[in-house]
Design a protein around this nucleic acid. Sequence first.
DNA 1: AACGTTCACGTGAACGTTCACGACCCCCGC
DNA 2: GCGGGGGTCGTGAACGTTCACGTGAACGTT
Lengths: 374, 374
Amino acid sequence: MVTVTAGRVPFPAGHPPTPATVHSVWADNQEHDPRGERTPRPEGTRRRATIHDVAQLAGVSRQTVSRAVNDKGEIDPATKERVLEVARLLEYRPSRFARGLVRKGAVTAGLVIPDLMNPFFPEVAAGVLEAAEERGWQVVVWDSRTDENRELQALDKFSHQADAVVGYFKNPDDVLARHLGGVPTVVLERGPHQTRFGAVGIDAAAGVEQGVAHLVRAGHRRIGMLDGDRSDAPGPRREAFLAAVRQHGLAVDRSWVVPSPEHSVAGGEAAMAQLFDARPELTAVFGFNDLIAVGAMRAAARRGLRVPDDLAVLGFDGLSLGELVEPALSTLHIDKRRLGRLAVEQVARLSAGQEPLTGADAWVIPELVVRASA
Amino acid sequence: MVTVTAGRVPFPAGHPPTPATVHSVWADNQEHDPRGERTPRPEGTRRRATIHDVAQLAGVSRQTVSRAVNDKGEIDPATKERVLEVARLLEYRPSRFARGLVRKGAVTAGLVIPDLMNPFFPEVAAGVLEAAEERGWQVVVWDSRTDENRELQALDKFSHQADAVVGYFKNPDDVLARHLGGVPTVVLERGPHQTRFGAVGIDAAAGVEQGVAHLVRAGHRRIGMLDGDRSDAPGPRREAFLAAVRQHGLAVDRSWVVPSPEHSVAGGEAAMAQLFDARPELTAVFGFNDLIAVGAMRAAARRGLRVPDDLAVLGFDGLSLGELVEPALSTLHIDKRRLGRLAVEQVARLSAGQEPLTGADAWVIPELVVRASA
DNA sequence: AACGTTCACGTGAACGTTCACGACCCCCGC
DNA sequence: GCGGGGGTCGTGAACGTTCACGTGAACGTT
């Protein structure tokens, strides 16, 4: 702990200030008051104090100031205290740029999240944060709101400000590549052969197969699906669903799957209403994710149908929210935190030039959790 | 679009490479290397190419390279293309440190969140992100997991790497101040007179009063409270609760409030069980937040009590999750996104030397949302 | 033919910090 | 009296960019 003589800049004998000191600094800085409170300053735009200012006012060299603020050895305790006091007076804070320039190793990663309101993503973000922290990285977060243009804005930033990027993207590879000039990148939820970047994700097919098998096992043969909002590409979950129902010999085709306008409860509710109209005979429905599945449950309730007796509902994600609804949601649980961790591990390998994770190491397999809804 | 001759470095006539070019680059990277890397190439850890390397290999000056990569004018298209090609070849990416050193204005803010799994915080984070983005700031996120030590770790990082800090903290002011050497800081959820930093938050008292009044209006006179985990300080919500019940003349004292071990459904469930034992006669309960309130509902269901007939439950936060449970949760809704926005506005004022927001501008007032549970 | 203009490009100098040295002082031992 | 050594402190020189200039050459214009 350092005790300080407040309000006074100490100049012990033997270290007289050079004639230039005080004056030149104040000349730069205007009046005397460091914080200046309300008055004459050009509205809070004072030049930030540098290590040089501190050195000059304290009557020492830059190096000594550096020694003081980084508390290294080779400095007299009295000097250190004095320097620190001056630093406080001037509100000196070392420039992270200058510092980063000379000592390398500070890594910052960019994380692009489609929707912070969807509980799925904060959890993978938590995984990313964990793993990044263990590596000493810092991560800056960007909410793209599932907007292609905002994704590109993010990349335009990150290509300048980040050493690595992970995230969810709707844009195709080539567009992405054009906006992130060479930064190592890992895209989530895109098959390893569907991307030129690093990739991790969930094994959608494995999950969907388990889900459909479970429903069939329970006697369902007329199963619908509420897909995500992928208006363009069909998406692996839908593909896997269609493959699975075909494999089980069900009389279900693509007219049994309707896309949800958005990845939310409201979206799922709307899509379910639509599906009810199209296929009133269905007895079970598979949701693209838990939010949509919950929406399906609400739509069923609105029609006076009972879950799971009149309609079995199966989700995908394993949000803890699923345990709270009535009845509790059966779902394919994903280890979202692990997913996030994998993403940073993958991008770390990429930027280190190591060979990427593949197969089961990069693709987490959903686990069927049977609760009340199916 | 730029078409490139892959695998070959083009040297158009009139721009012959100086004899030094290719060779000197490798010479720089190995022999002459001042850093003296002992191993010839420690597996993908080659020194990152600088603007100088690109300039040399392309046979132009640094400035021209700069012009090319930042696509400014004053450059011949052919030269630009050639430089870009070399840059790609060398995997050149400008150093954000060197760049930040010379052009100021890149602000990064640190955000400390206690628990990403609690849906409350992602939403205020979304607000922070929004407002930061509008200012051109980038924000790096840290999950403190409600751990005092981790809070300090965050500050130790941010004091070096960030220009501003906002977040939730359990640590007292003086401890915080010691770890964030002079960085402008805004703490959330701490009264303006309880902190020396900037502060924004919610007007807990106003919220609690509305809630208690609502319960009393519905005829309840034996009201309990499930507090947060503040083992040390009582916390403003509890204080406000006790004041409100006293004002309404209820025979309720501090034995009617039990702290939840954690801010979660499970915590609320446990706390509610405890409260049932202590005060079996209660007819209504006020939750510290929605998660805890939902826990109370589950505890009630487990005892065969019906909500709201046997036990009215009131939450605090207004999570969208509250609409999903059965019965839907009555709560005091908080504009969490606005809260986040206010935080960055406040810290922006702080770092600009402007006077901070106060009163109704800095303290968002909860709004009573009556649903089924109370 | 002399002169201005534009275009394409290069040259120090800054930005703020740390690192590798070297200088100085004081005290000790012989 | 001299060498040596530990403790303090200062001095260029990096680090990788951008900025404000300066320099030619090519091309008109009068």
